[in-house]
Simulated scan of single mutants.
Amino acid sequence: MREQKAFIGLIQTYCSKKVKDSFYRQIELIREAAEKGAHIICMQVLSNPILKRIDD
């Protein structure tokens, strides 16, 4: 059987008081991990403000 490898990206970052800033920072880090070859990306536990709806 052929060996398969999965690369994991672990992301932990600061949370800004501005929900949009934190949200877009997370997206930026996800993209960066994917560009570096991550197949699975694990995020930190998000605080309640991040889980709220983000309005433009």
Rank of each mutant, 00 (worst) to 15 (best):
M1I: 09
M1K: 10
R2S: 14
E3Y: 09
E3H: 11
E3C: 08
E3Q: 14
E3K: 14
Q4F: 08
Q4Y: 12
Q4R: 12
Q4G: 03
K5V: 06
K5T: 09
A6D: 01
F7E: 11
F7T: 13
I8V: 15
L10Q: 02
L10K: 04
L10S: 08
L10N: 02
I11M: 05
I11C: 01
Q12A: 15
Q12D: 15
T13Q: 01
T13A: 04
Y14L: 08
Y14E: 10
C15K: 02
C15N: 09
C15F: 13
S16T: 06
S16D: 07
S16I: 05
K17V: 04
K18G: 01
K18C: 06
K18V: 12
K18R: 10
K18T: 04
V19W: 00
V19D: 06
K20V: 07
K20F: 09
K20E: 15
D21H: 06
D21Y: 04
D21T: 13
S22I: 07
F23A: 12
F23K: 03
F23H: 09
Y24S: 10
Y24C: 00
R25S: 14
R25G: 09
Q26G: 11
Q26P: 06
I27W: 00
I27A: 11
E28Y: 10
E28P: 00
E28R: 13
E28K: 12
E28G: 02
E28N: 10
L29H: 01
I30A: 07
I30L: 01
R31S: 14
R31Y: 10
A33T: 05
A33V: 03
A33F: 06
A33C: 13
A33Y: 02
A33W: 10
A34G: 03
A34I: 14
A34W: 12
A34Q: 14
E35D: 13
E35Q: 15
K36I: 05
K36A: 14
K36D: 15
K36L: 15
G37E: 06
G37M: 08
G37H: 03
H39L: 00
H39Q: 14
H39Y: 03
H39A: 12
I40G: 11
I41Q: 08
I41S: 00
C42T: 09
C42A: 12
C42L: 11
M43D: 02
M43T: 05
Q44W: 01
Q44S: 06
Q44V: 03
Q44L: 02
V45K: 07
V45D: 11
L46Y: 07
L46T: 05
L46I: 00
L46Q: 13
L46V: 02
S47E: 07
S47G: 07
S47Y: 01
S47I: 03
N48Y: 05
N48E: 14
N48K: 05
N48S: 13
P49F: 03
P49H: 02
P49M: 04
I50Y: 02
I50Q: 13
I50R: 07
L51T: 11
L51S: 00
K52V: 07
K52W: 02
R53V: 02
R53Q: 11
R53M: 05
R53A: 08
R53G: 10
R53L: 07
I54K: 06
I54A: 06
I54R: 06
I54Y: 01
I54W: 03
D55M: 01
D56M: 09
D56P: 15
D56L: 13
D56G: 13
D56C: 12
